[in-house]
Structures are given as structure tokens and as C-alpha cells.
Write a protein that binds this DNA or RNA. Structure first.
Length: 325
DNA sequence: AAAGCCTTCAACCGCCAGGTC
DNA sequence: AGACCTGGCGGTTGAAGGCTT
């Protein structure tokens, strides 16, 4: 603490070591914990065992030396989904969120989220929402709705792990089709899953009682009106993600689509660029898109678009802005 | 091959709360 | 009661490695 540090002499200050830990230091720390347990961190220094502050020792133990940590293991899709869910519920309570993730530390969760936010910001060409700054400390306990405060449900497609492999297939219903080089994804909420009591329980267990899951899924109602004959049969190829929703929202703006569509497309590489047809602002445009699809050519075999009525996009309502959720 | 950019992650900082004296 | 101490937490930073051009 600052007050304490002021009382330290310059010599004492000079003795404090910072920076990366050496194996020998780790060993000393581990031995200390073996003897006394994970406590009395400051005594490590006072006993002359290490020239590290108690805080530094504790941090090292908690983040790196503690048993059963998943060091160097990327977040699984399920872990990502949990983080997204819990962040939406708790806000930036990383320590709390980490308790739901065995082997993960608050630092892990924080870093994961930070990376994700930066990724999002880059994709959306917006400044990274520095979710915080020292000046925001007064809001520490407030949950300020932000761009990431979207319904849980999905892990990030652009995430570090290979979700396409590990994502539970039942989590969402998606279909994709390709329009020229731009792959368009039809996104659907996992309607059957939503109806499943266990799924609801799972989701709602992370949500405050007043949280209306359905309300937070503006697509559901709209999508349920779509003439999809076989929704329950569509297994998800990809995740319905926050990023999708965010991009999708912006894609509702034709200017955004024209301005950034190609860059997003190239940026995401082969990633399916999500375009929620519900976002298209006009029938005309929707029809154009639909027409493109039809002309279109490389419709992927797994697509169900072939079964779409040509005027399918005409049935689509505009999405509410996430700000209204 | 190399320079520049980007991402990840370990570690530090400052603030805060609770315990102790 | 209040100063001090300690641990916990969230935010930030910078080094290192990976990736792109």
C-alpha cells in the first residue's frame, strides 16, 4: 500500500524485486505454501526468503503456481460461453466469474475478455471500449450496459479456440450460404433449445430473476415468424455470437455494410460473415440480397436456402437496436 | 529475411474492505 | 475510534512471441 511504502526506506525499496519470476523463486514460494499454506504472504519477505512483496507472492501463487491451473490452455468454447454469460450478468467481476471456471484465474478471465473486446473493436472499426479506467472506479459495482452486454448463448466465433470443433452443436441454428465471395449466414436462435426446460434452467441460472431471456433475444420472435419449415433440424455449424449480433446490427446499416463489408470479410478470412436478414432496412434491399442468393450460385450444399421462398426476406422485421434490449 | 503490427499474458499499480492493535 | 496492515480485486502495462506484408 502506498502508505506503507512511504514508510519503507530507500534501501528497503531497492531490495524489492520486480519482473519475471525465476524458477528458484517459484520453488521458494511453493515451499512456503507447503509449510504455512497460502497465507502470510508478507512474511515471505520479512523472513528474507524472497525479495518480493507479499502481494507479488500471492499473485504469483494464485495465477501461476496454484495446483490444477489450466496454464497455457486456451479457453474452450464452453468456458467462453460461460464467461460471456456471467459477464453479462455480473459485469467485470472477474474473480467471481473465475469461480465458475475451474482452473481459471481472475487474471485469465480478465485477459480473455480484454482480448475479446479488442478483437471486437477491431472488427467493428470502433475504439476498444476501455471498459474501465481509474476514473471509472466509482462505477466498479455498477453494471453498465455495454456493447458486450448481449444475451448469453454463444461463444465467440473469433475466439482463440477452435469453436467450430468444440461448440455444442445444439446451441444454435445457423445456416450459411455464399454470395460470391461473401459468405452470408442465416442466424437463428436455437428455438428448440429455448424450449427445452434444461436449457432454460441453465441460461436462467445465470440471469437475475427479472431478466427476461426472451426479451433479450430480439431475433426470436422475428425468426419464429419466418417460414422455415424445418428449423429443428438445423444443427449449428457455427456459433451464434455476440460478435455476430454486433456486426449484424451494424450491417443493418447499408452504409456500414458497403463501407466495411469487404474489409470485414477479408479480415475474417473464411469466417462466415454474419448478416441477419432481419436487419436489412428495406424490402428492396432484402429482395436484392435474396435475388443475389438465388442467382447466386455457390450455395453451399448444407444450406437450406434452397428451400426458402424467394420472398423470404420480405417477411423480415427490422431488428431493434441492442441499445434497446 | 526482416520489419512492423497484433495478440497474449504475466506482472504491476492503485483502490478498497476487513481485520488487528 | 482510528491508524495500520494485509489480502483481494480490477485496470493497465509492457515484453515476448506470432503473424502479416
Amino acid at each position: 500500500m502506498a502508505g506503507r511504502r512511504e514508510r519503507l526506506t530507500c534501501d528497503e525499496m531497492g531490495e524489492i524485486k520486480k519482473g519475471p519470476w525465476k524458477a528458484e523463486e517459484d520453488e521458494v514460494l511453493i515451499n512456503h505454501v507447503k509449510k504455512y499454506g497460502p497465507r502470510d504472504w508478507s512474511s515471505i519477505r520479512s523472513k528474507g526468503l524472497l525479495q518480493r512483496t507479499g502481494k507479488s507472492c500471492r499473485l504469483r501463487w494464485v495465477n501461476k503456481l496454484r495446483p490444477n491451473l489450466k496454464n497455457g490452455v486456451k479457453f474452450s468454447a464452453e468456458e467462453e460461453r460461460i464467461v460471456i454469460d456471467l459477464q453479462a450478468q455480473f459485469g467485470n467481476k472477474w474473480a467471481k466469474i473465475a469461480t465458475y471456471l475451474p482452473g481459471r484465474t481472475d487474471n485469465d478471465v480478465k485477459n480473455f475478455w480484454s482480448s475479446r473486446q479488442k478483437r471486437l473493436a477491431r472488427i467493428l472499426q470502433t475504439p476498444a471500449s476501455s471498459s474501465s479506467s481509474s476514473s471509472n472506479r466509482s462505477q466498479r459495482n455498477k453494471h453498465v450496459p455495454a456493447i458486450h452486454d448481449v444475451p448469453p448463448f454463444e461463444a465467440s466465433k473469433f475466439s482463440s479456440s477452435s469453436e467450430e470443433d468444440s461448440l455444442p452443436k445444439s446451441q444454435s441454428c445457423l445456416s450459411s450460404y455464399t454470395v460470391k465471395s461473401l459468405t452470408v449466414e442465416m442466424e437463428m436462435v436455437p428455438l428448440p433449445e429455448l424450449m427445452h426446460p434444461n436449457t432454460l434452467n441453465y441460461e436462467q441460472s445465470f440471469l437475475p430473476p427479472e431478466f427476461d431471456l426472451i426479451e433479450k433475444k430480439p431475433c426470436i420472435e422475428t425468426l419464429s415468424q419466418l417460414p422455415f419449415p424445418q428449423i429443428p433440424n438445423f444443427q449449428s455449424e457455427f456459433a451464434l455470437s455476440l460478435e455476430h449480433n454486433e456486426v449484424v446490427t451494424r450491417l443493418g446499416d447499408p452504409n456500414y455494410l458497403e463501407a466495411f463489408g469487404s474489409s470485414i470479410s477479408s479480415e475474417l478470412g473464411n469466417v462466415q460473415l454474419p448478416i441477419m436478414p432481419t436487419c436489412f432496412e428495406s424490402e428492396r434491399r432484402s429482395t436484392q440480397i435474396a435475388a443475389k442468393c438465388e442467382i447466386g450460385n455457390p450455395v453451399t450444399p448444407d444450406s437450406f436456402v434452397d428451400d426458402f421462398p424467394i420472398d423470404i426476406f420480405d417477411h423480415i422485421e427490422p431488428l431493434p437496436s441492442p441499445l434497446d434490449w
